[in-house]
């Protein structure tokens, strides 16, 4: 148990105030990774009312895709290469594309092999949920057998360096890239769902699958595209995650982040793209505030208490659920 000199919970308002801006900056950057992963949960939920618990492994597969691309490009664990910025950007983009492809492909494959057969047999929802959890374990163990249980050696192409400060809180190049790129990815996804023809199909299936089918929407195709988009976003998240946490490529590394991202999706309103973004960012900063205020061992508890409190007053999350009704 804790040392007798140490209280079981802190209430350090001074630290919270002192660290407010730093916590906000760090929380927004890390929260945007939550948000990108949360989008995958929310998209699938919107269309299938399925909580795809295996999405955390789709994410970690993307992380491995990025990592293995680094290896294939000739980078070695340990030393930080001293390359011109242009090369680094090209390498990062390349690795990100591979990560997107790996995650997207894995998500579609998962849908085909695990969920579609269940749908054919009109399985109850519970069967989907349990299959999702099972698929999560299977993928995790496959990665473990393949790559071992130790984290991959650190390869970091772009070390963080402060660019400017906000009220004394340093903002690093990495954080700016991740935050802005995540926002951009969100807008692409949001525009895709709300403006494109395929997106209209997704919304139609989310609203009423039977009627949508009668109106000529190919439901299976919509489902495939939904998984693909969710997977691709997870691949982007994988790149940003590995840039932030170079030790992140480990077989069970997606588990905790996946649960947090799922929490973010529910917090913002599952099934709602904007809710996923908002939920991710809120969760990112709330975790940091909570740690400063109550102590680091309260990190996860803060996230879930926040979820419980929000659901008590807004049972469908902050922005409400439903992909179909989230039209601008």
């Amino acid at each position: 148990m804790a040392a007798s000199t140490e209280p079981w919970i802190n209430f350090d308002v001074g630290l919270l105030i002192d660290r407010f801006w730093a916590n906000t900056v760090n929380g927004l950057a890390y929260g945007s990774i939550y948000a990108l992963v949360a989008l995958g949960y929310t998209l699938v939920y919107g269309v299938l009312q399925l909580i795809n618990f295996a999405h955390s492994e789709i994410f970690i597969l993307g992380v491995f895709g990025v990592y293995l691309t680094f290896l294939a490009l000739g980078f070695e664990p340990g030393a930080i290469p001293d390359l011109p910025l242009g090369f680094i950007i090209v390498d990062l983009v390349l690795a990100g594309l591979v990560g997107m492809a790996v995650s997207g492909f894995a998500a579609v494959l998962l849908e085909r092999t695990a969920y579609r057969p269940l749908r054919r047999r009109n399985a109850p929802r519970l069967a989907f949920l349990i299959t999702a959890i099972g698929a999560s374990f299977v993928l995790q163990q496959v990665i473990r057998i393949w790559r071992g249980s130790n984290p991959e050696g650190t390869i970091r192409l772009l070390p963080p360096s402060p660019v400017f400060t906000i009220f004394g809180a340093p903002v690093t190049n990495l954080q700016i890239i991740i935050f802005l790129a995540s926002l951009a990815m969100f807008f692409v996804a949001d525009t895709f769902v709300n403006r494109s023809r395929l997106g209209r199909g997704i919304r139609a299936v989310a609203q009423d699958p039977n009627t949508a089918t009668l109106m000529g929407v190919n439901r299976e195709r919509v489902i495939t595209i939904t998984f693909l988009v969710g997977g691709v976003l997870a691949g982007v998240a994988g790149l940003f995650y590995l840039m932030t946490i170079p030790q992140g490529a480990v077989y069970n590394g997606g588990f905790l982040l996946g649960i947090k991202a799922f929490t973010a999706a529910v917090l913002g309103g599952i099934g709602n793209l904007r809710g996923a973004l908002l939920g991710g960012l809120i969760l990112g900063v709330a975790e940091n505030y909570g740690q400063s205020l109550f102590g680091g061992d309260w990190r996860d508890i803060v996230a879930f208490v926040l979820l419980v409190v929000v659901l008590m007053f807004r049972p469908t999350g902050i922005l409400g659920e439903s992909l179909a009704r989230s039209r601008a």
């Binding site: 929380g27 992140g248 905790l256 400063s292 102590g295």
Partner: peptide, 18 residues
Amino acid sequence: CQADVRTNQREFSAVIGQ
């Protein structure tokens, strides 16, 4: 000073702030 982290935590900015 006393600070706490959680098993499997990978992002430590709040602890580092402390």
